[in-house]
Design a binder for these strands. Structure first.
Lengths: 150, 150
DNA sequence: TTCTCAACGTTGGCCCAGCCAACGTTGGCG
DNA sequence: CGCCAACGTTGGCTGGGCCAACGTTGAGAA
């Protein structure tokens, strides 16, 4: 009885929602292992990448761009600023706001982390051919488009 | 500038791991909304379904079958037993163990919840054709097979 | 102008899922 | 008999996400 697979009930195991959640959890593990090597987490990268791509922004803006609650942005920016990857400065034009900008070190780190992310994708998709990867991406994109009509 | 999508940096938005996690989170939301109508949660259903499918088992066994930590099984079985969906009895053959069995009410509830799960799959996959659903399932299964070589 | 209301950053807290350590109890094997 | 493993149970920790409240600041209405 030392059988192999300790998974869920058969009924669930073949269910698309279950497959999705399992696959997502493998992906998350790969990613967070990669991020850990940088001493950072997923949301740090999201913020850093958003800043590197679209330029400086207020914390609230950043939160909206990255779908991170503004209260959580505070702590994450503290971390990034503490490492010199990002600078927090009061906005002279609106004293309610802080302007967050990437430093050179931050841009470099963002670039390195992007490579880490790429490697994780390779690992994740290893068993699939290029064509199949495209298929998967296309299907998932269709799903998301449909389900994010607000 | 009231633009529509408040998502992640462009670099991530097209990344398979990101697509997966987003799709999985939609799926999880659909499922947990469905489960909420039964006053239960996902892990309750996993346990109940495993019991209904494969018959009575000890808590440790159940945990292994469903990939739920044995400490979490305790509370979940408490809930299920409190609702009369399940019975916890000492195993006469091994006094370390409890034997958990579904009651008739439990079997009925499991059946109803399975229908709820089915509906959630329909909602989730609504934008895809039958053929595409099969493709998606096949691709995800391949991914999981590859990544769960222990 | 003054009043009112919204947005900002920040603190603190809650919830959910998953994981792990520890304990006393019990069984099986050397 | 003695040791070790498995059991159920308690308690606690982590990571991620969400929400409420507060004092500050800006902007539009009366």
């Amino acid at each position: 009885m030392e059988s192999t697979a300790p998974q869920s009930p058969a009924g669930l195991r073949t269910t698309p929602s279950w497959l999705l959640s399992q696959a997502a959890s493998h992906a998350a593990r790969l990613l967070s292992e990669g991020f850990a090597a940088h001493g950072l987490r997923g949301y740090h990268y999201r913020l850093l990448a958003a800043l590197a791509e679209d330029g400086p922004a207020s914390q609230a803006d950043l939160g909206r761009r990255c779908a991170i609650d503004r209260s959580d942005v505070v702590a994450a920016i503290n971390d990034l600023a503490g490492r010199g990857l990002v600078v927090r400065a009061p906005d002279p034009a609106d004293r309610r706001r802080n302007v967050i900008s990437v430093t050179d070190a931050g841009a470099a780190e963002a670039h390195r982390m992007a490579e880490t992310v790429d490697r994780a994708q390779q690992d994740l998709l290893a068993p699939l051919s290029t064509r199949e990867r495209d298929q998967l991406t296309r299907l998932l994109t269709r799903l998301l488009e449909h389900h994010s009509r607000d």
